[in-house]
Amino acid sequence: MKPFGGPVLFLDRSDINTDEIIPAKYLTEISKEALKPHLLEDLKLDGFDPVRDLKGKAAIVTRKNFGCGSSREHAPWALEVNGIFLVVAENFARIFRQNMFNCGMLAIELPAETIDELFKIFSSGETRVEVDFPNDRLTFSNGNTKKTYSYLLSPFDKTLVKAGGWVEYADAKY
């Protein structure tokens, strides 16, 4: 299983699409590593600087419909090669969400009020998140502030994360 948790990047926008996560012109790359410098380079978000803001981050917290648009698995791969294995959002586009779990990564959905609260309490300063995978809990901390939230994950999603992805699971079973 991948190591989940670490410094958090907050992206205060809904509908961040896969073209923004990794532009199509990089889809000609065969190696995942080549995607690394281009993560979120076309993100339309005031004040966002990918080089400065992505440095050292291990998780993203964002709003609604993250990963909408193209089916490109290059989007989770671009996150993966940058060490970001966890995205927390109000909800995800279906294909992106499935791609995350198929790669053994975590796409966690929390209610709108909780996401609002996370932005309010944790989006300024340096925030970290810890993942308690067996108990379905996330703990955010920033200075002396610390809060724990429960999340729901289907047994299938959990199985994929534990198995390290869908290929091995399906080949053994079907």
């Binding site: 490109r72 698995e73 294909i95 499935q98 791609n99 198929n102 992805g165 869908w166 290929v167």
Partner: peptide
């Protein structure tokens, strides 16, 4: 008919 990522395609 559904669009999928590379892993689903692979399977």
């Amino acid at each position: 008919a559904a669009g999928v990522g590379t892993t689903d395609l692979e399977v």
